[in-house]
C-alpha cells in the first residue's frame, strides 16, 4: 500500500500536506503525532473514507478511489465503535461476512473464547475494553491485509491494552498483514512498531526505522557554571532544563556538536539512557506536550 503525496484541505485549512510513505505487509507502522496533527485524517484517507485534495492511495499500484473493491484488503477501526453499537454480535458477523468474502468466523470465535467475550444482543452494551477487543478481533477476522487502527488503546486499562497489543503482534507474526496504528503515545509503540512516522502540522516530520533510531541520537545531561549557553541550545534538542542542569539530545556521531559543548567546559557531561519518547518530545515541542 502506498500513500502517494497526499494533501487534504478542509475549509481552506491544510490538514495534511504532501504525505508520502509505503506500507509493506509484515510490518507494524506507527503514526505518531500530537492531538490534531492530522493522524485520524490520514488514516481515514488511507481507508478511502476521505478523498485527498491531492495525491492518491494505491494498493498493488491501483488507486483505491478508482477501484474501491481494493478496499476489501483494508479495514479501518475507528477510535470508537459508535457506528455499529446497535448490532448484536451475530448481526455484525453476518454483516462482515457478506461484505468481506474471506471472513474467518472460526478465528473470530476462537479469539472470543480466548478472551471470554460472550455473544451479546447489543455491542454497545459491552464494556469499553470489550468493545475495543471485539472490534479488533472482527477486523482481523476479515483477513484484510492492511489493518488501520485509530488510537486502538486510548483510554483502556493496562490489561486490555496488553491483550490488544498481543493479538496485534500475533497477527503480524502469523500472517502477512500490515498494521498501521495511530497514537499520541509513543511509549506504547516504541517496541511494537518497526516503522514510525512522526506527523507534525499535517506533514511527515520524520520517518525512521526503530532500530536505527537509538543509534542516531544520544541523550546527555549537562551542567554548566551558569545557564545553558544559547549556542548549545540552538544546536541540540533541549529536552529539559531545570536551573543549571539541562538534558539535551545530540546526534550520536557529531563531533562538531560535542566539541561545541566541551568548548563551554561543562561541569558535568554524562550520557543518559534514552527512550524514543525523548526524541518525540524533542521533535514535537518541549514540556508542554499533550
Amino acid at each position: 500500500m502506498e500513500v502517494k503525496h497526499i494533501s487534504k484541505v478542509i475549509h481552506h485549512q491544510t490538514i495534511l500536506a504532501d504525505i508520502e510513505f509505503e506500507v509493506i505487509p509484515g510490518n507494524i507502522v506507527g503514526i505518531v503525532g500530537r492531538n490534531g496533527a492530522g493522524k485520524t485524517t490520514l488514516l481515514r484517507s488511507m481507508a478511502g473514507i476521505l478523498k485527498p485534495t491531492k495525491g492518491d492511495i494505491t494498493i498493488d499500484g491501483q488507486s483505491i478511489f478508482l477501484k474501491p473493491s481494493l478496499k476489501a484488503q483494508t479495514i479501518f477501526v475507528p477510535d470508537s465503535s459508535e457506528a455499529l453499537k446497535n448490532y448484536s454480535t451475530k448481526e455484525l458477523i453476518y454483516l462482515y461476512k457478506s461484505i468481506y468474502p474471506h471472513f474467518d468466523q472460526q478465528y473470530l470465535e476462537a479469539l472470543m473464547n480466548r478472551f471470554s467475550l460472550e455473544p451479546i444482543n447489543k455491542i454497545g452494551n459491552y464494556s469499553k475494553g470489550m468493545k475495543a477487543l471485539f472490534t479488533l478481533i472482527v477486523a482481523f477476522a476479515t483477513k484484510a491485509k492492511y489493518i488501520l487502527l485509530d488510537e486502538p488503546t486510548d483510554g483502556l486499562d493496562v490489561i486490555i491494552k496488553k491483550q490488544i497489543l498481543q493479538i496485534l503482534i500475533e497477527e503480524v507474526a502469523d500472517k502477512d498483514v500490515a498494521v498501521i496504528i495511530s497514537s499520541h503515545r509513543l511509549d506504547e509503540l516504541e517496541f511494537m512498531a518497526n516503522d514510525v512516522i512522526l506527523i507534525k502540522d499535517g506533514r511527515v516530520d520524520s520517518h525512521y526505522e526503530l532500530d536505527s533510531m537509538k543509534e542516531l541520537y544520544k541523550k546527555i545531561q549537562l551542567v554548566f557554571e551558569t545557564e545553558l549557553p544559547e549556542e548549545i541550545a540552538e544546536n541540540t534538542y533541549v529536552l529539559e532544563q531545570t536551573g543549571r542542569v539541562s538534558t539535551v539530545l545530540i546526534p550520536r556521531d557529531s563531533t562538531a556538536v560535542e566539541e561545541l559543548i566541551s568548548s563551554y567546559h561543562p561541569l558535568l557531561y554524562e550520557e543518559l539512557s534514552m527512550s524514543l519518547e525523548d526524541y518525540f518530545i524533542a521533535k514535537l515541542g518541549g514540556d508542554d506536550n499533550v
Partner: peptide, 17 residues
Amino acid sequence: NTRRNDFTFSLPYKRST
C-alpha cells in the same frame, strides 16, 4: 450525523453503489 458514514465509506464499494 453519526460515525456510521465512516464505516460505510470504508467498505469496498463504490460510493454510487
